[in-house]
Simulated assay, not measured.
Amino acid sequence: MYDQKFLSLIKDYEKDFSGWDFSYITDTGRIGSELLTWSYGSIVNHHIPKANSLLDMGTGGGELLSKLHPLPELTFATEGYKPNVTIAKSRLEPLGIKVFEIEKDDRLPFKTSQFDLIINKHESYSPKEVRRVLAKGGIFITQQVGGLNSSHINEQLEAPLNSEFVDWNLRFALDEIKKEGFEILDKKEEYPVERFYDLGALIYYLKAIPWQVPDFEMDHYIKQLYIIHQTIERDGYFDVKQHRFLITAKAI
């Protein structure tokens, strides 16, 4: 029923994924993304020289933080996904960055007003707790994945969107942050295209981010996956729209 190429590609579901490293499919050009009009890394780099203390929330495996330098002497990181904690510690602690494993966003293991810069890329957060640990005048920079991210994948698989995140967007996030005593310095929201060049790349992606399709199992979606495979064979790619938004805010 299914061709050999399809059967070979679905084996990518068995490939290991660790930290926050998509190089298996990005470095080989099997997936590509349209560029945003902003660079999270450049924005963060602009603020780092002004900071005496820095917190990176949701550092993943520490991939990005380890490349930002020179960092403040007082730099810390948190990570809530247990498999990433060991990876982050091995990468960051030799650099003098202590990594804290956390379970709840509203209970950070830091003193009130401890930081003057908090960065957060694609990590959940409690606006109230961020404000608590951020000093007055301190800066909070976050890039978030919106609730409509890659919704076309769900449509094609006939899988519902994750109800926990579906209403997560720039307007909602701004309302929350403003209520906790922040001045908004910058805000943006965009829907760049993400392109998959083979089905194996898509399957690897879904395994890496299980919240996109929380009940994703190969056998359950095999027919829908084959239809996507046929689309890629016909058109050369399968496109979906990402959902990203950026907020830079100052504690007042």
Rank of each mutant, 00 (worst) to 15 (best):
3 D>E: 08
5 K>I: 15
7 L>R: 12
11 K>C: 10
12 D>Q: 05
13 Y>G: 12
13 Y>T: 05
13 Y>N: 14
15 K>Y: 15
16 D>I: 12
19 G>Q: 10
20 W>V: 08
20 W>I: 11
26 T>C: 11
27 D>P: 04
28 T>V: 14
32 G>W: 04
34 E>T: 10
36 L>D: 04
36 L>H: 02
37 T>V: 12
37 T>M: 10
39 S>P: 03
41 G>S: 10
43 I>S: 10
48 I>C: 14
48 I>S: 15
49 P>H: 12
52 N>Q: 15
52 N>R: 11
55 L>I: 11
57 M>P: 02
58 G>Y: 04
58 G>E: 06
59 T>F: 02
61 G>W: 04
63 E>V: 13
63 E>D: 08
64 L>D: 08
69 H>L: 11
72 P>A: 00
73 E>Y: 09
74 L>S: 13
75 T>A: 13
76 F>W: 09
78 T>D: 07
79 E>D: 02
79 E>P: 01
82 K>W: 06
83 P>I: 04
90 S>V: 05
93 E>M: 11
93 E>L: 05
95 L>F: 04
95 L>E: 06
99 V>D: 03
99 V>G: 02
101 E>G: 03
103 E>V: 03
107 R>I: 06
107 R>W: 00
108 L>T: 00
111 K>S: 07
112 T>S: 04
113 S>R: 08
119 I>G: 01
119 I>C: 01
120 N>V: 06
121 K>I: 07
121 K>F: 00
123 E>N: 07
123 E>D: 06
126 S>Y: 00
130 V>P: 07
130 V>R: 07
135 A>Q: 15
138 G>H: 05
138 G>V: 04
140 F>H: 05
143 Q>A: 02
144 Q>H: 07
146 G>Y: 00
147 G>F: 00
149 N>E: 07
150 S>P: 00
151 S>P: 00
152 H>D: 09
154 N>K: 10
155 E>V: 11
155 E>A: 08
160 P>Q: 12
160 P>R: 14
161 L>N: 06
161 L>P: 01
164 E>M: 06
167 D>K: 09
167 D>E: 09
172 F>K: 02
173 A>Y: 01
175 D>S: 08
178 K>S: 13
179 K>E: 15
179 K>N: 14
179 K>A: 14
182 F>Q: 03
184 I>A: 10
185 L>Q: 09
185 L>N: 11
190 E>M: 08
190 E>H: 09
192 P>V: 01
194 E>R: 11
196 F>W: 09
197 Y>R: 05
197 Y>N: 05
205 Y>V: 03
207 K>V: 14
209 I>C: 07
209 I>P: 00
210 P>C: 05
214 P>C: 01
217 E>P: 10
221 Y>M: 13
221 Y>F: 15
223 K>H: 14
228 I>T: 14
229 H>G: 14
229 H>N: 13
230 Q>Y: 11
230 Q>V: 12
232 I>T: 13
233 E>Y: 09
234 R>A: 15
237 Y>N: 06
238 F>S: 13
238 F>L: 12
238 F>H: 10
240 V>S: 07
241 K>A: 10
242 Q>A: 12
244 R>F: 12
